[in-house]
Design a protein around this nucleic acid. Structure first.
Lengths: 150, 150
DNA sequence: CCTTGATCTCAAGTGCGCTTGAGAAATTAC
DNA sequence: GTAATTTCTCAAGCGCACTTGAGATCAAGG
């Protein structure tokens, strides 16, 4: 089904099948500027194949916890009129790569802290700074500072 | 556990300062069973020190993307009437540890796929299965399968 | 005391990310 | 040429995680 000349592009149903997104979700993403399909004579949306990639990218970024607005911000750098080039995707990919690294770091730190605390048996003691961020840390801000600092 | 004899426990304001959560959020968590404070003569909530840990734990679990209901499910295993023991926290910690591992794995996989795709320059080609999960994969389900599979 | 600030309950509102009709028009399948 | 399916727009609704008043009560310092 690659760009059937008769149909001049992919329907929203095609995209739905290939991305797993509901048509309503795809239309919703359109309002956020993540895709910008053309219309055929009858007013129906017609998508380019590159839009599959756009949506896949948006889905991946969402799994990282990015809000749609921010995703749209990153994707605003992609060309609207032509299929994004390698350089286009590489730049965006690099941005996301940094976010991934940060997130992996944070989770790894949290895991290691958790391991350490379980190992030392301090979880039941009042002196554990991991689950008991009181007195010593009370003046340094709020929250479980040793566990989460991102 | 050693409640201040003068005040008989921590106020919601105390917890708010030490966890960084708004009082309204703490009350909201109460409706989900994450904390269960006692009341003083005047009807005000009085918390045990262990509740700081409960909230910290819930905040950590939330950063992992767990919905409150699920967090509450894990914490239901903790004793309501006494400060959780080392064994109590260790069990919960181990459950979370598994989630952390899975999440780190998923993110690492995504990052490596992204790296590979950037490296090979395939992002602009129709044959890239990472951002172009079409033909070959079209019969195997939906979504960006090589990027995200969790 | 008395005042100031913290806390109480309860209902309603917010922001995000969609979904769900309703009613109509376009497209496809037979 | 019909029938079935898909898509269209627009408004409203939903689930989650809270926040924001409103109006009243409680607690603590001078």
């Amino acid at each position: 089904m690659p760009l059937d000349p008769a149909r001049q592009g992919l329907t929203i149903g095609d995209l739905s099948e290939r991305t797993g997104l509901a048509p309503s979700a795809i239309r919703f993403y359109e309002t956020h500027g993540i895709v910008a399909p053309l219309r055929n004579a009858g007013g129906h949306r017609r998508y380019a194949r590159a839009d599959i990639r756009r949506l896949s990218f948006a889905m991946a970024a969402q799994k990282l916890g990015l809000p749609l607005a921010e995703i749209a911000g990153h994707m605003a750098g992609l060309p609207a009129d032509r299929a994004p080039s390698k350089a286009d995707w590489t730049r965006i990919g690099t941005e996301i790569r940094a976010l991934l690294d940060a997130r992996i770091d944070a989770l790894t730190r949290l895991r290691d802290n958790l391991d350490g605390c379980i190992g030392c048996g301090c979880l039941s003691m009042e002196t554990c700074t991991l689950w008991n961020p009181d007195d010593r840390l009370a003046t340094k801000g709020t929250g479980p500072r040793l566990v989460l600092r991102d």
